[in-house]
Simulated assay, not measured.
Amino acid sequence: MGDPHRVGIVGLGFISRAYLDTLANHPAVRLTAVADLDPTRSAAVAAELPGTEAISVEHLLGSADVDTVLNLTVPAAHAEISLRAIDAGKNVFVEKPLAVTFPEGREIIDRAAAAGVLVGCAPDTVLGTGAQTARAAIDSGLIGRPLSASAVMITPGHERWHPDPDFYYTAGGGPLLDMGPYYITALIHLLGPVRTVLGAASRLRTERVIGSGARTGHRIPVEVDSHVSGVLEHVNGALSTITTSFDGVATTAAPIEVHGEIGTLAVPDPNHFDGETRLFPLGGTGWRTLPLSAGYTGAGRGTGLLDLVTAGAQRAPRAGGELALHVLETMTALLRSADEGRRIELTTTAERPSPVPLTPVDESLGRSPEGSGRPPE
């Protein structure tokens, strides 16, 4: 089956632990190198992983022992690190969002295509049994023709639990760019690509107070909108409404609901891989939970990278760069719409990724059929 695909990780902050839990002992990949601006952090991670070297970012990006760079830096650095990796001939898998701005995201995809390397991007949670079971229900006609959907994410703000939440309130942060990728990616898996958007946004607080860690009580400025609402018009004619907010305490709304001619689906939280999909049929008397019918079981953060490097020539990666670019344009267009007060037509589109059969992640993503995992010629 060839050697495991060689992965180097740049950025070892809060989210890296979830990726390490998935990738560290997976037979399809080998973590050959890690790098962080804090060398003590990279040294500590490397010490946990036999055969993994703690090196500088520059050394990692140029290493002949790295096939794919897993970019877990803060959003503002996503484009810089991804472009440097691409220019070094590496595949890239990026933590969401693909970039802070749409032009940066466009450049990542274009430069990767010119270099003949692959780009993947989180979120990969939509490849789990939650969103995939809901998609299978829609595709099988269980709710009839889908007409509309709603997506709701409301929290008091990440400063309550994150010890260093500053970047959530600077360029590239905010509830839409931070959490919107989960919801919009799921909506595209469920209903297909987006054609136009109309947005509104607000920023009613100028600062936040850190609630945990060594900086508890420290005040940080809010430089981005903290509540964003919008309407997405999908190519198939369905309308989705979305609300993402760091300005609420709680909500009773389902994370995602899809309404069709003969039924409504309640879709589980797209920030998780699993969860119950529930159906309320037309003329029914209550909700019923659907059995799991699709998706990677036992999946965790990094499943999208595994899907990318094992796709080979048989199919496109399900967490691929073109989808991530379309999601990024959808979000940045919503923010631009809110700022300009007008409807905006998107310039990108994306194919719905191929559905994921109900399969244990370790069985379907065992080893790369391409050996090194390099893109096909």
Rank of each mutant, 00 (worst) to 15 (best):
A200K: 13
R160N: 11
G144S: 09
A200C: 12
M153Q: 12
V197G: 00
I154T: 15
Y168V: 01
L191C: 03
Y182P: 07
G172L: 03
T125R: 07
A122V: 00
E107P: 07
G105Q: 08
G141K: 02
A201S: 15
H162P: 10
R160L: 15
V209G: 04
G120A: 06
R219A: 14
G217P: 10
R111Y: 11
A113L: 08
T155V: 11
L147R: 14
Y183A: 14
A214T: 15
A113T: 09
G213F: 14
T170G: 11
L191F: 00
V126I: 11
S148Y: 13
C121W: 03
I154W: 10
G141Y: 05
I138S: 02
S140P: 06
A113F: 04
G105L: 06
M179P: 03
A134D: 05
A136H: 11
G211S: 12
G157K: 03
I138W: 00
E107Q: 14
L147M: 15
T170S: 14
S212I: 12
G174Y: 04
G144A: 10
V117H: 02
G105Y: 10
G141Q: 03
A200P: 06
A201H: 06
A151W: 02
D178W: 04
W161L: 12
I184N: 06
F167N: 01
P181L: 00
R145Y: 10
G173L: 01
P181V: 00
R135Y: 04
T196S: 12
A113D: 13
D139T: 08
H162M: 09
M153H: 15
